[in-house]
Design a protein around this nucleic acid. Structure first.
Lengths: 230, 230
DNA sequence: AATGCTTGACTTGTATGGTAGTAGGTTAGT
DNA sequence: ACTAACCTACTACCATACAAGTCAAGCATT
């Protein structure tokens, strides 16, 4: 059902504001709403069959995440992707996840290692052209690491921050080097299994720097989606 | 002017919502609004001479920060301080600042080191009973490190997260061990000046773990402000 | 023809009305 | 006297009305 606008998009059981937020957030990350595109509280409200108020709350939250820019009395626009912003959130993410992995390696709990290896097997099964599927598994992998370290809150911080990175990953046109990414995952798990904190930390730092290799090329080939003038 | 409620608290030039947010945030952090206390959109709106709408937006943002808890159709309450939450944000902060300090040590720019040493001198001048003054300088010190590393965004993440820690620091009844904290600052700067990344990193990690030593005692002596049942 | 002003259709920001749901006190029933 | 149902006074949530500012198009004036 392509672009069908349901009469009532929102479901019961949760406030409308957060629902609108998630819907719009997803659309921006998946480049369904393009950088530079103009949004409007009223338009979004109409198309989602809610009032302006929850939409406004969603806009505010999106603007705090840097996904939209609200200009009073002028309009609300989907922010262009900024190489600098992506590198900023990447830095924060690397710092947090590095410490998380150290903790996991310190514990090197057998059930955690088993779970991670199970996930690695699943990742290898993903067809190389099914980007969305792999991204889901990658997300799960990192989330599992955080959970294993008992750092649910730290993961929530990462989640609230990494939208900028996710936008870029959705643009990767080529095969995403899935094989290489899985190899990096393996090194992380190996380090954890060996209880080698330093090795595991170094592995995830390298893994999270992977985006830096593809970022310039993506920014060049899809320049219209990016802000940085270069 | 003690507790005078001005007719119009808000100023021009900025939207009301964020202003209300900052006012309430400050009051919560400084324990002017006590954990467990009930807030109300209408009450806060009346006392600030604004409408309920901006107050609502402020409540939402405060709840995302974990400073209040919004219970639909029931009320909004200042969250009790939670030892677990404090440790959660502390972990995130340590992870980020550790990497920041590594960067600063790598650069070991002379003007940065000079500025930091200047701040150390100021910190030593603070009377041992002027907690607020030292906290301001401490804040400035850490902010300066982030700025020197060119990580303004990372600092903004820390700021949006560290409110839980600040609440505790405001409760420290004793002399806050100002002398010890300044010593730790000195070790950080020494590591940076020597270009010794590992030493600087270890120094700031120890520094940020300092709160762990006083936290249990504070939680015990001010148990009514804390959530954790122990 | 070119320039300046007005006007109107937008935008977000703020205020207020209406609704569903909760909680506690009160009253009726046993 | 005790229990249980009701009723009132709240709450946050959503919808709508109003205000203030922006911008562009088009008309009037020069």
């Amino acid at each position: 059902m392509p672009n069908a606008k349901p009469a009532k998009v929102v479901a019961i059981g949760e406030s409308v504001g957060p629902q609108v937020y998630r819907i719009l957030r997803e659309r921006i990350i998946q480049a369904e709403l393009l950088p530079g595109e103009r949004l409007s509280e009223s338009d979004a409200a109409k198309s989602l069959s809610v009032s302006r108020q929850p939409v406004r709350e969603a806009f505010i939250k999106l603007s705090e995440e840097g996904l939209v820019q609200v200009l009073p009395q002028r309009g609300t626009f989907v922010t262009k992707i900024s190489v600098a912003s992506v590198m900023d959130v990447r830095f924060v993410r690397e710092a947090i996840e590095a410490d998380i992995v150290r903790l996991v390696a310190e514990g090197h709990a057998p059930e955690t290692i088993a779970e991670l290896r199970r996930q690695l097997a699943e990742q290898r099964k993903v067809p190389h052209d099914d980007r969305a599927a792999f991204l889901r598994l990658d997300e799960l992998f990192h989330h599992t690491l955080a959970a294993a370290a008992g750092k649910a809150y730290a993961w929530s911080v990462i989640e609230s921050v990494k939208a900028q990175m996710d936008r870029v990953r959705f643009l990767s046109v080529d095969d995403l080097h899935i094989g290489r990414l899985i190899e990096q995952h393996e090194r992380i798990v190996d380090g954890i299994a060996a209880g080698d904190k330093a090795a595991a930390e170094e592995a995830i730092r390298l893994h999270l720097r992977e985006i830096l290799t593809s970022l310039p090329e993506i920014a060049r080939s899809r320049a219209e989606l990016f802000d940085d003038t270069e």
